[in-house]
Amino acid sequence: MAFQLLLNMLLSITWMFLNNDWTAAGFIIGFALGLLILIAFRRFFHQPLYVKKMWAIVKLLLIFTKELFVSSFAVAKHVVSPKLNMRPGIFTFRTVLQSDWEVTILACLICLTPGTLTLEISRDSRTLFIHAMDIEDADELAEQIKLSFERAILEVRHA
């Protein structure tokens, strides 16, 4: 992905050289034209086009923001309710993610989901111990994490 991005920038700079046009607009036009060239020659790359990965990252950021809002409202509801009727607890979550940065992102996302907080990541970084504010059904909570976050992170990896 980094190689393709670098290639695109190189093409853009070449375009600026050809036109002797050293402005931001010239760079953007060159970048768009370079992107077209990359699309035309995509069968020579070993990896898929980098635009796909960029889009997956943007989607992950959007999920991050949405979850922050949802979880803030959930916590606020617990804070202002007159009686403390939540049932906190710690549950384990097995992840299929492998590299360190993926597990890090997952842990950060879990810290921002409605009523969950990562407490510990095991030595082999496969098991996460998560403190939940309201642990009605831990399996359901884990399933939810799997479906939304893990899938989004896997999408970034595979794109």
Partner: peptide, 8 residues
């Protein structure tokens, strides 16, 4: 009133 503790 915590209900479970897997880490312990």
């Amino acid at each position: 009133r915590s209900v479970r503790d897997d880490w312990e």
